[in-house]
């Protein structure tokens, strides 16, 4: 994960969030579970420990409870509530590009880019590293 973060930093065109508070990560997990929503994948929580949110002209990775310097990122938990997907118990929305949402589909253990309007899967990835590289690099 650190290699990915270093690559993102080196690109010079990506706004990176500060580190997520570990207690907020725990709260997010608990909250999602209690609300019977799909809990975000471990890889996502690992990434936000380094950079709580990412943004460039190409897209955005949502953050966990963005506060202070991270306040301009969208909150991943709140976005999942607002987007109000029917499959909220298996699919988490973690970010977006101009045309697609980045989702993690627990039923197939894949990260996917899905068309914002049609929900068609456009790209699939086996790890968050691949997905982030696609979206930002």
């Amino acid at each position: 994960m650190k290699d990915l973060v270093d690559k993102l930093k080196a690109s010079g065109v990506i706004v990176m969030g500060g580190r997520a508070d570990v207690h907020h990560n725990i709260d997010a997990r608990k909250y999602l579970a209690e609300e019977e929503m799909a809990v975000f994948p471990d890889e996502y929580f690992s990434l936000v420990k380094y950079s709580n949110g990412l943004r460039s002209d190409k897209g955005e990775l949502y953050a966990i409870l963005p506060l202070d310097d991270n306040r301009n990122f969208k909150d991943a938990v709140r976005m999942n509530e607002e987007l109000d997907r029917e499959d909220y118990d298996t699919v988490s929305v973690l970010g977006e590009t101009s045309y697609d949402y980045l989702v993690y589909d627990n039923s197939v253990s894949q990260y996917q880019l899905r068309d914002k309007i049609k929900d068609d899967v456009v790209f699939s990835f086996s790890s968050i590293i691949q997905a982030v590289e696609y979206m930002f690099l």
């Binding site: 987007l83 109000d84 997907r85 929900d119």
Partner: peptide, 18 residues
């Protein structure tokens, strides 16, 4: 709300009003 209004028959119910 989704259950009472029988909303959005397609697989997505997203793009709710922020």
């Amino acid at each position: 709300r989704v259950s009472v209004s029988n909303a959005t028959p397609v697989g997505i119910a997203h793009r709710a009003m922020a």
